[in-house]
Design a protein around this nucleic acid. Sequence first.
DNA 1: CTGAAAGCGCTTACAG
DNA 2: CTGAAAGCGCTTACAG
Lengths: 341, 341
Amino acid sequence: MTIKDIARESGYAVGTVSRVINHNPNVSDAARARILEVIEKYHFQPNANAKHLKQQANQGIAMIVKGTHNMLFASVLEKMQAECSAAGYSSMVFYIDENDNEVEQARCVCRERKPYGVIFLGSDRNHFGPDLADLGVPCLLMTNTAATAAIPNLSSVSVDDVAAAVRMVGHLLDNGHRRIAFIGGDLTSSQPSSARLSGCLSEFSRRGLSFDPAGQYIEARYTLVGGYHAMEQLLDNLPGLTAVFAFSDIMAIGAIRALRDRGLRVPEDVSVCGFDGIELADYLSPRLTTIRQPAERMAGCGVSILIRCIEEGCDAVHELVPYELLEGESIQRLPDPNKIH
Amino acid sequence: MTIKDIARESGYAVGTVSRVINHNPNVSDAARARILEVIEKYHFQPNANAKHLKQQANQGIAMIVKGTHNMLFASVLEKMQAECSAAGYSSMVFYIDENDNEVEQARCVCRERKPYGVIFLGSDRNHFGPDLADLGVPCLLMTNTAATAAIPNLSSVSVDDVAAAVRMVGHLLDNGHRRIAFIGGDLTSSQPSSARLSGCLSEFSRRGLSFDPAGQYIEARYTLVGGYHAMEQLLDNLPGLTAVFAFSDIMAIGAIRALRDRGLRVPEDVSVCGFDGIELADYLSPRLTTIRQPAERMAGCGVSILIRCIEEGCDAVHELVPYELLEGESIQRLPDPNKIH
DNA sequence: CTGAAAGCGCTTACAG
DNA sequence: CTGAAAGCGCTTACAG
């Protein structure tokens, strides 16, 4: 069933059928009514490939998401889709495995779907090189900054990961913690993890405290079980530790379970804090102290940047949105160490 | 840049270029080498719309997912994508809002992408009528049964929701609970909710106990906040209640938070159980007692059914996979009510 | 092994 | 307002 069949049956030419389908006003009411009737009768659906081939059309905005289990991404994504459609762009989500190459995927998508722009949720910094410009459309990296990558068509929206980590570490130190461990992602591939770790390091050194990345930082996947195993290792390696800063809420939840399975209470025996500020963090007991990344605001900001790049050809921008330290109940105030000494 | 350009530059005809691109063996090594060289030089990517138009080709298997926040769906999806690609099918995920019409979306996708088959994760029973057959490809509903819908091209894989609810209610009753409330989805649209509720009803009546759906069952969205508000309502309406059965783990987590915010302990004051058996359930404190839907097994089963329908034109089948009651720590054993009386 | 040509199902100037 | 026709970028018999 093609528009040719509709044309024959309705007694009009294919051009007229096409105009009816595309809501072109230059069609008589009689023709429109008749053609619509035939279309209805056969439940005719035009062939999108032909349409797009002809129009060289593209398909709105592509969103490439690494991993299906990331609750922060889910929130960001939901809002971005709403923002895109409010701005008159359709959006198309491509989920890929955490270990797949998101830039390769973007190449495929650009070839097949010709989007106006591409949004990345999650990234391996090793995949983002200057050849991203070959995609030929504005791109946006969400929740990681791409400022240092300096790729001409890649914008980014994120919190200031360094400052946020400084803030959280400061909070732990202010609460009397000194033996603190960290659980984060693979430092060679995860830009936010290394930014957060460097924030931690700098706050330690600013306060004249020592920090041993080899012993205090454990790399883990951003999953429950990743946080769980990392915590087990830390308990074996760092006896007497009083606080753990996990670089995602999900890892923090895993870590808390590991602590409890060793008979330790949170926060009485060990304090735990997370990063992301997912909705779930506020439903746990104890409520998780964490850094909130404002998903909705980031999404809105990102979409408007990308659309500006698309419509006005603006240069890439790297926007930092404000984070927030959400005080939960998972950090214990320890006796002031200065008073002890 | 089209194959015409490649043809001109390489000195061969477009047909030969096309053959190289499609790995047709009938090309001389010399031609292949030269053409590949030119393709490389320009990073040429063939236009997929033209290819698909010509081939009337389709794009593997479409997966339509309702809601981005469902952890059970995320697990099922991940496994299904792996299974599809292992079977040589590409897969394409379409996330839609929980309130959008998944069957409408499937129509769009079928028109635009011509998939071999469509998988639905999540469904509103009102959207599934006999006109689903118009899609012209085998469809599969995951985690909800479609046995009663009896649509010729719609298979389904699910647990036996009725039996699972009977089992969980029996477990609560066996533990001495009598004042039990239920939190589930909208009964007019959610097939599993009404199946589970009917299981609850039948177990109550089998044991000669009364059940008041109007008072004991609260409809909520399948979200944290949905569970939270439903629990608040129940506390207001059913004083003295000793147990709550939420029809999803996420709702159960919301309910637990609401209980604690009213100063009640779980399970000492009120027992809570969930449904789904998401990974998170086992990381909570107390660990959640729940019905495990075997995500991986369901995914594997569903994909193989769909592929059989696609390749061998089999009739739709409705498969039940075994559920499992996961005993956590969220149900309190009460004194035997028979001994009291 | 290769080329010339038809045709996939649409859209859109162009002419009337 | 409508029709006839060109053409989007590919694939694939067909002929050589």
